[in-house]
Design a protein around this nucleic acid. Sequence first.
DNA 1: CAAAAGGTAAACACAG
DNA 2: GCTGTGTTTACCTTTT
Length: 616
Amino acid sequence: MQALQVARQFLLQQASGLSSPGNNDSKQSASAVQVPVSVAMMSPQMLTPQQMQQILSPPQLQALLQQQQALMLQQALLWESLSRSRHLPAGPSVSRQPSHERAGRCFGVSSPPPALTHSRPAVDPQLQEYYKKQQEQLHLQLLTQQQAGKQQPKEALGNKQLAFQQQLLQMQQLQQQHLLNLQRQGLVSLQPSQASGPLQTLPQAVCPTDLPQLWKGEGAPGQPAEDSVKQEGLDLTGTATTATSFAAPPKVSPPLSHHTLPNGQPTVLTPRRDSSSHEETPGSHPLYGHGECKWPGCETLCEDLGQFIKHLNTEHALDDRSTAQCRVQMQVVQQLEIQLAKESERLQAMMAHLHMRPSEPKPFSQPLNPVPGSSSFSKVTVSAADSFPDGLVHPPTSAAAPVTPLRPPGLGSASLHSGGPTRRRSSDKFCSPISSELAQNHEFYKNADVRPPFTYASLIRQAILETPDRQLTLNEIYNWFTRMFAYFRRNTATWKNAVRHNLSLHKCFVRVENVKGAVWTVDEREYQKRRPPKMTGSPTLVKNMISGLSYGALNASYQAALAESSFPLLNSPGMLNPGSASSLLPLSHDDVGAPMEPLPSNGSSSPPRLSPPQYR
DNA sequence: CAAAAGGTAAACACAG
DNA sequence: GCTGTGTTTACCTTTT
């Protein structure tokens, strides 16, 4: 994860120099539900379903689930055909991963597939051999290239370096070409755009966090190159190994859409970032920094550049291992670029939605894409009745699209499908204060059977504070709940009990005897005391995402503008401006209470719920 | 791992 | 006795 963040930041630094991948990407993304690549890449190996829910909005999560399902299907089919034709063992087991299953089941959708890399099929020997041949072929090509480079007279060290770099570059290009070949032949599958239909196969791609292991696995110096190749064959999880199952005969396979990356970049990358902000002065080397070799997984200390060069030539010579590592690195870069493209596209969409000038938060130079953000809704069936006053496209509230997640506008990710339990406390940080959130999405909650992403306490408080005299009877609180939220029109026993429980439990709710009975009021001071305001910003992941997305680069005025805007995401405490939330009186930090969707437990005690347990 | 917070369930008391 | 209200406890999950 850290590696991913670092890499992303690195990419972001270079974003201005990149050939605005987002532009090219828009074509592809227009037809696909956008799942943040960052998430898709990480999941499911790297993220728990809960974490995924934190980061993903329901549509995105949905899309991800669908992706993974499709992947599973794809794999299953391939396995089937393979095992038919090649007598391979049955495909990877599909039923497992209770935690994922849990998430899926709750939402009324089938469970997402297990981590693909968790069940690795044995590599088909034929294919491995073919793959190896390809490697050798590539190696030969590379050697040829290298020879060509060596023919040139050795001049100054700088020239030598330059030539070396060029070789490296060529090597990478060739690697990429080789990769492309493999992809075309179905040996390697990693490009998101290759997935069937609009789906993306990111989980199949090499996951950055796998890299250390990968590097370690391959990186043992002195290891016979062949071994490392084999090992790599096994280690290149998403690529060679998984790809083996795709085993098409070595020829075939019309290129089709395999040419381009999802972001539209040609698959043959130019690894050299001309605009690379990192110093590439004559006295340095991109793979040399802070006295150590930056070759992935190496970190060998080198006193000076000369020593490093020597080290580079000896330890990282042009062998199978190096090329394999190189290829992996390329995949990493590709994935990161894809990710960058998508994230920047999303940022653009967010800014477009806020009517902000695109120039403000700089790093991305793409023109505003009118819809990319809402492209996450692109798979959502929208009926006329689902149009909301704010002009946004809202998810349907009917059962017309059972698999379609409902998402209130502007709501980050807190709530999922109705009955879909998600208690995402951290993701509340993405939610607006309850009052504005409710004001904005009043209609949505009123009609959609979506559990509001607020705690009972905050809802009760809101109900009470909405009244002129700021007091309500229990029954009136009940009525408020049912009036405001479709979700609370059912399953009454549960939530009413919870309401009572909360009223009694929290000191902030004061029972006052009244003429006509008892009413409940809010002790605001107690309420604020309940939880100290934190600038938490949620899990590290989110923080990293934020920093990675350069939100931190937003200047004060921009933040102020955001604070005044009604943008729930950025307006919420924990994002950008913790103080801004308190300006949205009368509700403050704790308005973002915990969303109340509890995950059905791991099946242990609390029964998983497809829908709330009892209806009355 | 522990604490805190939140959600759910349930038992119980009490008043109408 | 039933129902609604209110309190309390227990247990769970998630987050920090």
